[in-house]
Design a protein around this nucleic acid. Structure first.
Lengths: 189, 189
DNA sequence: ACCTGAACACCGTTCAAGT
DNA sequence: ACCTGAACACCGTTCAAGT
C-alpha cells in the first residue's frame, strides 16, 4: 500500500480541517487524521515533525488565505471604507472558514506560542489594518484604534462561529459593518 | 487515606482552575486533577458525572462570579456609564480570572453545547447588558447594539488573555473604556 | 458513603523493520 | 524515500472490590 497519494501532506491537512470543522480543533487526533487519509498512525511523521506542526501548517494556510481576502477587499475603496471592508472580511473569513479560524486563533492553538512564523503572519494582518487606519486618520493614535477595531471584529467572529449569540453569517456581516461604522464615527469625533 | 478532605469537590475545582491557568483549559486532565488533589484517578467520579461535568462546574462558578461583579459595577451610575462599566468589568473579569473565562467561553468548552444551565447563565449576562442598553437608548434596536458591545468586549478579552496583541491588564481596561465610549457615541449619532 | 486498583479502548511519539 | 507495527507512557471511563 505504498504511495497511496501523490500528495499525502495535502490529504492530511484536508483531514485535519475536516475533523476540526466537525468536532472542534481541540479534538483533532493524529491517529484519526492518518486513518482518514488512509495511512498508518505514524505516516504523518514523514511530513510533519509532530502534531503541533501539522496543526500549524493548517493555520499557516488560513493566514495566507485571510491575507489574500483582506487585500482584495481593501483595494477599490477610500480609506474609511477600506477599514470597514477589512474588518468585515475578517468576520466573513471566520464564518466561511471556521476550522481554519479556530486553528489560527483558538485557545491552545499552535498559532500563539509554539510556532514562530505564525506570529509574524498575525502581525502582518495587523499591519494591514494599521496602515488603513493611519491613512484614514493620520492625526489620531492609529495603533490603539486598530486594536479596538480588531477587538470588535475578533469578538464578533468568535461569538458567531461558537454560536454564542445565535448569529447567522449574514447577520454577523451586517452587524459588523454597522458597528464598525459607529466605532469609526465615535473615534473621529 | 480515606476522608482526605472535608471538601474534595472544592479541591478538585481548585486543581482544575490551577491547571487551566497553567497550561490552558484544553489540557486539563482528570487524572492530573485527581493527583493534584491527592486522591486516586477515579475519586472525581464520586463528585462529578464525568470530566465535562467537572469543567462545567468550574464554569458555573465563573458565571456566578462574573454576574456579581457586573451587577456591582453597574449600580451607582447613570445609563450610559452603566453600559460602559458593564463592558469594562467583563474584560477585567477575563483578565483577573483567566482560567474561569477560558472554561466559560473557550472553544470546545462545556459552556456551549453540553450543559443546559450554563447557556442560561450566559443569557442572564446578556440580559443584564441588554437592560442597561435599553435604558440608555430606548428608541434604538437595543438587541443589535448589545451584540455589538458584547463583541467588542469579548474580542478585547480574548485577545488580551491569549496575548495576541501584547496588551497589559491596565491597557485592556482603558482601551475597552474608550472604545465603548466611541461605539456608544457612534451608535447614538 | 467514599475511595481504590485493575482493566479497556483510546492518545502522541519513538523505534526497529520492511520495500 | 516512504510507510508499517509494536511498544511506551499517557488519557477518560467502567467495574468489582475494599472500609
Amino acid at each position: 500500500m505504498a504511495y497511496h497519494h501523490g500528495d499525502l501532506r495535502r490529504a492530511l491537512l484536508d483531514a485535519t480541517l475536516a475533523l476540526a470543522d466537525e468536532k472542534g480543533a481541540a479534538t483533532v487526533t493524529l491517529r484519526e487524521v492518518a486513518g482518514l487519509a488512509g495511512v498508518s498512525q505514524t505516516a504523518p511523521y514523514r511530513h510533519f515533525a509532530d502534531k503541533t506542526a501539522m496543526l500549524a501548517a493548517a493555520s499557516e494556510e488560513g493566514f495566507v488565505l485571510l491575507r489574500e481576502m483582506m487585500i482584495e477587499a481593501s483595494l477599490p475603496t477610500e480609506p474609511r471604507a477600506r477599514v470597514i471592508a477589512l474588518g468585515v472580511t475578517y468576520v466573513e473569513f471566520a464564518v466561511s472558514h471556521r476550522s481554519h479560524f479556530r486553528l489560527m486563533f483558538g485557545q491552545g492553538s499552535p498559532a500563539k506560542a509554539t510556532q514562530k512564523g505564525l506570529q509574524a503572519r498575525a502581525r502582518d494582518l495587523f499591519q494591514l489594518v494599521l496602515a488603513a487606519v493611519t491613512e484614514w486618520q493620520p492625526r489620531r493614535d492609529a495603533r490603539s484604534a486598530t486594536i479596538q477595531i480588531w477587538a470588535l471584529c475578533h469578538g464578533m467572529a468568535n461569538l458567531t462561529i461558537e454560536r454564542q449569540l445565535g448569529m447567522t453569517a449574514a447577520l454577523a456581516s451586517s452587524s459588523t459593518r454597522s458597528a464598525l461604522a459607529a466605532l469609526l464615527d465615535g473615534l473621529s469625533a
